Computed example of a mutant assay.
Amino acid sequence: MAQPPIATVYVRNLEERVKPDVLKETLRAIFSEYGNVIDIVAKTNLKAKGQAFVVFDKPEAAEAAIDDIQGFELFEKPMHLALARTRSDATVLKTGNEDEFDAHKRRRMAEKDKKKALEAAEDQKRLKRPLPGAPAEIAARPAKNARGAGLKATGQAAAAVVPDEYLPPNRILFVQNLPDDYDKDVLTSIFNRFDGFREVRMVPGRSGIAFVEYDGEVGAIAAKENTAGMSLKDGEKTMKVTYQRQ
């Protein structure tokens, strides 16, 4: 199925010291010359600073802006422009189709979770790498992590373990921190409202944890987004929901 035309411009190489509100106002003034700008998203987290997304109501406006503004200096830095890889939330919302927007949001969250998992795995690998030029006897030592962020020191190389919150999506959820009296029926009533629900599996001899299985990732992603952090028993417990470790 062909992807609908993209009406969003991805902007990078922006001056990171400019405040988000000032940056968005300036971008709107520049890009509005090419069409109706319906949204501007300026990234503020450390890794994504210097980037923004400018959303037009028509794909032709996005293409015209890229052709004309490419390399334009803003705050003494040339902007690098390209079409975004996917449609923005604002574009999908314009269709008025709630089901389409929900599906779009689930796909975006799945991609975000996968990216986090890959980044976490890379971070763990870096912890295991010896420093350049380190003596062989030092390089051969097993990596140690004093903060316990997923590396277990053994007589061999330490194994990298991705933290629970960064595990990539799959169709089985791991549910923790449940009240002791929560059984299969109670959990079924919470999780069976999401598409593709299959079953709840309790762990024999262990209270407070369970596995919830769906037919596919889509239902599991929706369930995780809507139940993680849910308050249980009048706030006595907060449910933790992650993807099952593969």
Rank of each mutant, 00 (worst) to 15 (best):
E217Y: 06
R126M: 07
R171P: 03
P135S: 14
P163R: 06
D39S: 12
A223S: 08
V22N: 10
E76F: 12
P204I: 04
V200K: 11
R126A: 05
L127W: 09
V9R: 04
Y10Q: 06
V9E: 03
R108T: 05
V200F: 07
G216D: 15
R28G: 04
D195Y: 15
D215F: 05
D67I: 07
R87A: 04
N97M: 00
Q70C: 01
K19I: 13
V55M: 10
E137V: 04
S32I: 05
Q246G: 13
L118K: 13
K49M: 05
T227G: 04
R129V: 04
K49T: 00
V162P: 11
G155V: 08
R12G: 00
N177F: 06
L23W: 12
D99H: 08
K233H: 13
L187K: 05
R17F: 08
F31E: 09
I172Y: 11
I172S: 03
E76P: 07
A121Q: 12
Q176R: 05
V92H: 15
R87L: 00
A117S: 15
K125N: 10
M202P: 03
L131K: 15
N145T: 02
R28F: 06
F53D: 08
K128M: 00
K240Y: 15
G50I: 00
Q244Y: 15
H104W: 11
K114D: 15
D183P: 01
V186H: 14
A103H: 02
I38T: 15
A139H: 07
A84E: 05
K19Y: 03
D57A: 12
A149C: 04
K144A: 15
T44W: 03
E165G: 08
D181F: 14
R106Q: 10
K240R: 13
H80R: 06
A159I: 05
T154H: 10
D39P: 06
R245P: 03
